[in-house]
Computed example of a mutant assay.
Amino acid sequence: MTARKSQSWDDFWAEVSSARTEVIRGIEVRVPTDLPLAVEQRVEDLRDSESMEDIGELLEMLFGVSLDEWRKAGMGLRELQTVLTWGMAQAAGTDMSFAEAYEAVVKGDNGGKPVAPPGANRATRRAASGAPSASTGGRSKRTSSASTGSARKTSRG
């Protein structure tokens, strides 16, 4: 059997990955076609982060553009949320339109999770995730398992 010359992995992946770009706020960005493992891990690491620098790090990993570039171009928080929602969908293989991403942000429909503005503090994100209590207007506290659990049963042997 003769060896067949094949291209390198990098050449192959560059060929199958889309080279599509979009212009967002006057800046040409590559459309994410895959979610780099590093991005997935950083999203988990930064889930409760209040730092815009952390959001900027994710933007650079996903789009190859800095947060400062979009800030200078006049991008607002809702726009940024929409771009992130759209980019994450594209990276996951879902060809979502900008309008669909905006609708998801406005409705808070992000895979069943509420969408809080990037950089919003933890209290704001928590407040967005639960309905206020009827009597106090605050969120309900978790009931301890001691008061709601059933009595432990012993085995008969």
Rank of each mutant, 00 (worst) to 15 (best):
A99M: 04
A101F: 07
R125W: 04
A128R: 03
P132L: 07
P132Q: 09
T124P: 01
P118R: 09
A104T: 08
A116Y: 06
A116K: 02
S97H: 09
K113L: 03
A99G: 06
T124F: 00
A127R: 03
A116F: 07
D95N: 15
E100A: 15
A92Q: 10
E100K: 14
G108F: 05
K107E: 11
A128W: 04
A104G: 07
A120G: 00
G111W: 06
G111D: 11
P114T: 08
A116C: 12
N110S: 14
N110G: 14
G130D: 01
A123N: 04
V106P: 04
T124L: 00
N121A: 00
A120R: 01
E103D: 06
A116T: 09
A120T: 01
G111Q: 03
P132C: 08
A127P: 02
A99P: 02
E103M: 02
A120P: 01
A123L: 06
S97T: 15
P114M: 08
P114S: 13
N110C: 07
R126C: 00
N110E: 04
T94E: 15
K107S: 11
V115C: 11
N110A: 12
G137A: 10
Y102C: 14
A92R: 13
G137W: 12
D95Q: 14
A120E: 02
D109P: 08
S97G: 05
G119Q: 04
V105M: 12
G112C: 10
G93S: 14
S135N: 07
T136A: 13
T136R: 11
T136D: 13
N110P: 03
G130N: 02
